[in-house]
Simulated scan of single mutants.
Amino acid sequence: MRSWSDLPVGRVVRLDVDADAMALSIDPLPPGAPAILSYRPRLAELLDDARTVAELVASVLRELDAAALALFPAWLPGAAGIDGPGGAGLRAVRALALHRASTGEHYGPFLAELAERALAGGPSAFPPEVRAAGLARVLADSYGRNATAVLVHVPDELGAAAQEVFVAGCEWLAQRAKAGVWLTGAPLDAVDRVPTVRPRLVSGPTGTATPTDPRWHSGTPAIEPGGARMSYPAVAGRPHPGSPSELALEAALARCAWAVGRSWNQTYLPHPLAAPIRLDLLWERERCVVEIDGPDHRGAAKFAADRERDVLLQLDGYAVLRFVDVQVLTDIETVLRRIAQFLRGRRGTEG
């Protein structure tokens, strides 16, 4: 059994653990873990016998690139107030990127280009090898981690040729990016060079865990059927860039004076023997937690897990206000009114 810090980076391994339990256990990122992103490739493309390693690599790099751009400015210190290419924006982020590279392991020209593209868009001019290494460093920096790993779901129904292309592409990524590539999902019976390891399971909120433990809260965007999707944990202090409902709520709260004191995606530890819980939105002084529930919260296991989380928070004096994502996106005024009413009650104010 291996802990998160023991799992290898720079190589491809298969994780002997339930894929759903693994997905739930990486948000929030466990201590000692690299920055972990989850990737589900398009099955239709992998089933194409003409699919090449270069094409697979290109599709993964597009997804990693999109994640890095969405996470800006988490990976570029000093860029938080720069939100557009106008004025001196491009020159400012370029200077910040070059300074950042001069004090660390980043390749300055790549980091400067990525920072500029975060503001102005456009494709990268760098070759795949440079992009793979640079994106892995940027993603690790976004979460304050030393390395990056990609949790790749192996689709069902891959033939022998497709399995070989799939593994070769994963090996390319692991070697060029010096990242962990951890496989879950369907077996690769036609490829025998991928070793299997079993990570040590992480405890759930009340201190117990099983391979199918459903009790971790997952804030990563849902995977659309049939679509390639790179999902990733939220960065503390910011709404998740892949969550339209979190972004919409933050945009609305930013216009409300009463919303002062809020903090997004904070980690909370109910007690020393419990696993941490990631809270969507927190007002610490008022001890108010706001959770935005997507479709995955409507299943029986997740519903029960949410109730357990709520009880743990309530025992510590927190109130939990829950809204479904559709409500946030279609009736945000009601959501704002209910949050404001609660906060004013806790503050002992009116109006």
Rank of each mutant, 00 (worst) to 15 (best):
M1G: 14
D6A: 15
P8E: 04
V13I: 02
D16F: 04
D20K: 13
M22N: 06
L29K: 05
L29M: 12
G32S: 08
A35E: 04
L47K: 13
L47I: 05
L47W: 00
R51Q: 11
A54M: 07
V60F: 11
V60W: 02
E63P: 01
L71Y: 04
L76G: 05
G84K: 01
P85Q: 09
A92D: 10
R94Q: 13
A97W: 05
L98C: 04
L98H: 01
A101Y: 01
A101F: 03
E105Y: 03
L111Q: 07
R117S: 08
R117H: 11
L119P: 01
G122A: 09
A125L: 09
P128D: 13
A132I: 00
A133D: 02
V138P: 02
A140G: 06
D141K: 01
Y143G: 01
Y143S: 06
R145Q: 10
A149L: 01
L151S: 13
V152R: 03
V152Y: 02
V152S: 04
P155T: 11
D156T: 13
L158G: 02
L158F: 06
G159F: 00
A161N: 01
A168L: 02
A168V: 00
W172I: 07
A174I: 11
Q175T: 12
A177L: 01
A179Q: 00
A179N: 01
G180P: 00
T184M: 10
A186L: 03
T196H: 11
R200W: 03
G204C: 09
G204L: 07
G207L: 06
T210A: 14
P211G: 13
P214M: 01
W216C: 13
H217W: 07
H217K: 12
A222L: 11
E224C: 14
P225E: 08
G227C: 15
A228T: 05
R229Q: 14
V235Y: 03
H240T: 07
P244D: 06
P244E: 10
S245H: 00
E246L: 08
L247I: 08
Q266Y: 02
Y268F: 15
A274E: 04
L279K: 00
R287M: 10
D293Y: 04
A301Y: 00
R309G: 10
L313M: 06
L315M: 10
Y318I: 03
D325N: 13
V326L: 14
L329R: 03
L329G: 05
I332D: 02
I339H: 00
R346I: 07
